[in-house]
Each structure stands twice: as structure tokens, then as C-alpha cells.
Amino acid sequence: MSYTVYINSNKRIKCLYGYAADKTGDHETAIRIFEDCINRWNDVYSMLWLAQIYESGVSVTKDLQKSTALMKRGALSQDEAGYSSLARYHYGIALFTGTGTSQDKKKGTEFLIKAAREGIQEACDFLTAEGVNCADKKPE
């Protein structure tokens, strides 16, 4: 099955087909679908997947700055499906570690705490591994 027919679709379900295209090895189509979903609907799900593509360098030149910028955009968004919380987790780690952006542990911790409070347990696990008790912290 070719997913190229979904590239210019005006139906939002196509964002899910971007995932399928990526997983079946049609990375170019996946990228085009994700980019269109982001442009049309500010789709955080697509931001997460496209960020992972740029982080890994699959079918594109590896670009940690672009990956982190997509995570930041998703982290500053608020979607109904909860993908923004996952973006806050990934962006918090990027800030904390300085991956694709300047290191800012304080700001990274704030994003991670918010993600943890929104149900992303891995955010609290990360902070705990770094010696930060996320249960005692309040986001600023």
C-alpha cells in the first residue's frame, strides 16, 4: 500500500498514516505528511514523529536543533489528545542535557515536572535519576 495518496489530503486522519508510512520504510512520504499536518493543524503528534526522524537522521540529515525546535513547539502547545505532555517530557530532557539547544537544567526541570504532573511517569523517573525529587517541586 502506498501512502503517497494521503500527502495532500485535507482529512486529519492522514497524520496517523504518516506514522504507518514511516514504519513501513516510506520515510519521504511520512515526512511530507507530518510537515503538512503541522502546517495545517499544528498537529503535535506529527511534531513528535518528525522530531524523532530528525533526531535519528532517518532519510534526512540528522538535525538535533530542528528536532528540539519541533519538541519545543509541541511542548508550548496544548492538544486534546495529550501529546503536548509527551513533547514537554522530550523538550525538558533536551533542555536538561543540552541536546539541540543550550543546556538549561532549571528550565528543563520545569518542563519535566509539568510533564510528570500531566501523567508522564518517565519525566519524574528521569529527574529522580538525576537526583531531583520531582514530587517536591512546583513548576514556576
Results as ranks from 00 to 15, higher is better:
140 E>G: 15
115 A>I: 00
37 C>M: 02
92 G>V: 06
7 I>E: 01
124 C>T: 05
86 L>A: 13
103 Q>T: 03
1 M>S: 15
45 Y>S: 04
134 C>G: 03
1 M>L: 14
48 L>Y: 05
48 L>D: 10
82 G>C: 13
2 S>V: 04
33 I>H: 00
29 T>H: 01
99 T>P: 09
113 I>C: 00
133 N>Q: 02
65 Q>K: 09
123 A>K: 00
34 F>K: 05
25 G>W: 07
126 F>S: 07
81 A>G: 12
105 K>A: 10
18 G>C: 06
59 S>E: 05
35 E>F: 13
112 L>R: 00
19 Y>M: 10
23 K>G: 04
70 L>E: 08
122 E>T: 06
139 P>K: 06
49 W>P: 05
102 S>Y: 07
34 F>L: 08
32 R>Y: 11
27 H>F: 11
26 D>R: 02
7 I>G: 01
139 P>G: 03
51 A>T: 03
64 L>W: 04
12 R>P: 04
93 I>Y: 07
60 V>H: 03
105 K>L: 10
21 A>R: 00
3 Y>I: 02
124 C>D: 10
58 V>L: 12
70 L>D: 08
84 S>V: 07
53 I>Q: 07
137 K>D: 09
18 G>D: 02
71 M>W: 13
76 L>D: 14
76 L>A: 09
42 N>H: 08
107 K>Q: 09
36 D>K: 15
28 E>I: 10
63 D>I: 05
105 K>F: 11
61 T>S: 15
115 A>N: 00
59 S>R: 07
122 E>P: 04
140 E>D: 15
27 H>W: 10
103 Q>P: 03
116 A>S: 01
124 C>S: 09
72 K>M: 07
88 R>L: 13
50 L>H: 07
127 L>M: 03
90 H>W: 15
32 R>S: 13
89 Y>D: 09
132 V>C: 10
61 T>M: 14
114 K>H: 00
103 Q>E: 09
88 R>I: 08
104 D>L: 02
129 A>N: 14
44 V>N: 06
93 I>M: 08
22 D>I: 10
102 S>G: 12
117 R>Q: 01
2 S>W: 06
5 V>I: 15
126 F>D: 05
53 I>H: 05
69 A>D: 09
75 A>V: 02
31 I>E: 01
105 K>Q: 15
97 T>Q: 15
52 Q>Y: 14
138 K>S: 14
33 I>W: 00
134 C>P: 03
119 G>V: 03
132 V>A: 07
58 V>H: 11
99 T>Q: 14
38 I>S: 05
115 A>S: 00
113 I>G: 00
37 C>T: 02
99 T>N: 15
100 G>M: 06
46 S>K: 06
95 L>I: 05
133 N>K: 05
68 T>R: 01
115 A>W: 00
53 I>L: 13
105 K>P: 10
79 D>L: 07
85 S>W: 15
97 T>H: 14
13 I>Q: 13
129 A>D: 15
109 T>E: 03
87 A>L: 14
52 Q>I: 12
12 R>V: 08
83 Y>I: 06
107 K>F: 06
28 E>A: 08
138 K>C: 09
48 L>E: 08
107 K>H: 04
3 Y>L: 01
4 T>I: 12
43 D>W: 07
120 I>D: 04
63 D>N: 11
